[in-house]
């Protein structure tokens, strides 16, 4: 009978199956494809092919530049918004928060299309020149799409900060500005870090926004991967997998780095993303 006893361990089985099929297996396949040629012989040519083409490195730089800029702008806008919302004693602050995150509920392709229409409208009024500002348009679209994802984690951390820590800081002689930089900001680092993760990761790869708003003039690494997988030649899946793997390693490294930063800042602080 013992063998049939249901233990808590068994609750994990569906999750393990899910992980194997949808996470581990694809990863293994990507690695397999990346290191082989169309004949399934081991090769490093896929990587050489990617790195030796100067255009590719430029795309990589643009992708990360775009993502970094979007992330910075998002945090700069999201932090004050989250701070004000968290501070406000208004009963309506929940509604304001809702207004900020409401766009999240609308399909993001639609949202991006709407931003495009809006920009063209401004173009029509002579305020904004779309054809001159594809890069800027892409950033506007990305910031708009990912702002809710940066407000929410920061807000959640801010409202959980112990009020008495803020009072203690004031009590010890810190004025409101000093209190913010010495206590509130360090204590909200976990929120900022998860906001960074929520924005940085998708913006490096989401080519839909770049395609729609950059009018295909702005190519990011996501486009590159898509082109490879769409090409359908014998080699293209292998090259595409190699690019994906490069991207994965870079993102993993950057997250490891920011995690370390966070750890130094936030001894014994809240959990990592």
């Amino acid at each position: 009978m013992n063998a049939l006893r249901f233990s808590r361990k068994h609750l994990g089985i569906p999750y393990i199956i899910f992980l194997s099929v949808f996470v581990i297996l694809p990863l293994v396949l990507i690695v397999l494809y990346a290191f082989t040629d169309s004949e399934w012989h081991f090769t490093l040519n896929n990587f050489a092919d990617f790195f030796l083409r100067s255009g590719n490195l430029k795309v990589l730089a643009i992708s990360f530049g775009l993502a970094l800029l979007t992330t910075v702008i998002c945090i700069l806008i999201a932090y004050p918004v989250a701070y004000v919302l968290a501070q406000s004693k208004l009963k309506a602050s929940g509604i304001y928060l809702l207004l900020f995150i409401l766009p999240m509920w609308i399909n993001f392709v639609l949202r991006t299309a709407a931003v495009k229409e809006l920009l063209y409208m401004l173009d029509g009024l002579g305020i904004y020149d779309v054809s001159e500002n594809y890069f800027l348009s892409t950033i506007i679209g990305m910031v708009y799409d990912y702002l809710p994802f940066s407000i929410l984690p920061i807000y959640t951390v801010l409202i959980k900060i112990d009020k008495s820590a803020i009072e203690a800081s004031m009590d010890l002689g810190a004025n409101p500005v000093q209190t913010f930089f010495r206590t509130t900001l360090p204590l909200s680092m976990p929120g900022i870090m998860s906001a960074v993760t929520m924005v940085f990761l998708p913006t490096t790869t989401t080519y839909v926004i770049a395609d729609t708003l950059g009018n295909s003039k702005v190519t990011i690494i996501g486009n590159l991967i898509k082109t490879q997988f769409d090409a359908g030649t014998a080699e293209s899946w292998h090259v595409g997998s190699a690019i994906s793997l490069v991207l994965l390693v870079i993102i993993f490294a950057s997250m490891l780095f920011s995690g370390k930063l966070n750890e130094n800042d936030q001894k014994g602080g809240a959990s990592k993303w």
Binding site: E167, G268, G269
Partner: peptide
């Protein structure tokens, strides 16, 4: 304001800075 008063407080739940 509290930061200009020459008094210091020991709080009920300590209120130490966790960071």
């Amino acid at each position: 304001p509290p930061y200009l008063r020459p008094v210091n407080t020991v709080f009920q739940r300590y209120a130490l800075f966790p960071h």
